[in-house]
């Protein structure tokens, strides 16, 4: 929760300083954001490539456990895509890219903003924050109506960190391993899936 606040305060500070006209004009150059995004993608890649635990995860895989992140992928992309029918400013592709954030709002928002522009970036930021907040706040209700997996699938990528405590509390300790697994797989897929979805023109 603390790190969420830090992340959001950087966004808020950006808005505040630019509205107060505090900043030099070169900060507004879109090229700067593009280069920073490339740098981020490179660093995320190094993190993924150098992570030994990730290799270990692939060994743990069994068919049923893979189904959980798969359900989140299909459900998030499908559900967001379906509702894009009611939002005329957002098309199917953009909605699916926002859905593919899986709650990982910081990374998905900056990738989407870099590729599709700030407006969709803001939508992605808000949509994925809302996803996390609903998961945290509604956890007991979700478990009651949708079963033990509910918090894990609604938490998406955050099931490995920010929403893990509510998974443990409302789904049970034995679900923690599954939650972490699903969360890690989804977090890894965000930087791959979001650009991939947006690459179709």
């Amino acid at each position: 929760m603390k790190s969420s606040l830090i992340i959001l305060s950087f966004f808020a500070a950006g808005i505040f300083f630019s509205m107060a006209d505090f900043l030099p004009a070169w900060l507004l150059d879109e090229k700067l954001s593009s280069y920073a995004l490339y740098l981020l993608m490179f660093i995320v890649g190094v993190g993924v490539g150098s992570d030994k635990a990730i290799v270990g995860i692939w060994r743990q895989l069994n068919f049923r456990i893979i189904l959980i992140p798969l359900v989140v992928i299909l459900g998030s992309l499908g559900g967001a895509g379906l509702l894009s029918y009611f939002i005329h400013q957002i098309n199917l592709q953009e909605a699916m890219a926002v859905g593919a954030g899986f709650g990982y709002y910081s990374l998905s928002a900056v990738i989407i903003a870099g590729i599709k522009g700030q407006e969709l970036g803001v939508v992605a930021l808000l949509a994925n924050i809302i996803r996390e907040v609903i998961t945290l706040v509604m956890a007991p209700l979700l478990v009651r109506f949708f079963g033990k997996l509910a918090v894990i699938v609604s938490g998406g990528a955050t099931a490995m960190d920010t929403t893990l405590p509510v998974v443990v509390k409302f789904s049970g300790k034995e679900m923690a391993v599954v939650a972490i697994f699903s969360g890690i797989v989804l977090s890894l897929l965000v930087p791959l899936l979001v650009p991939f979805i947006l690459s179709f023109s």
Binding site: I68, V71, V72, L74, G75, S76, L77, G78, G79, A80, G81, L82, L83, S84, F86, I87, Q89, I90, A95, V98, G99, F102, V122, V123, A124, L125, L126, A127, N128, I130, R131, I134, T135, L142, F145, F146, G147, L149, A150, I152, V153, S154, G156
Partner: peptide, 17 residues
């Protein structure tokens, strides 16, 4: 828009889950 999209993602994931 964000709220609707997050409901969509959540609903889809929960139903399939």
């Amino acid at each position: 828009q964000a709220f609707l999209l997050s409901l969509g993602s959540l609903g889809g994931s929960l139903v399939l889950g």
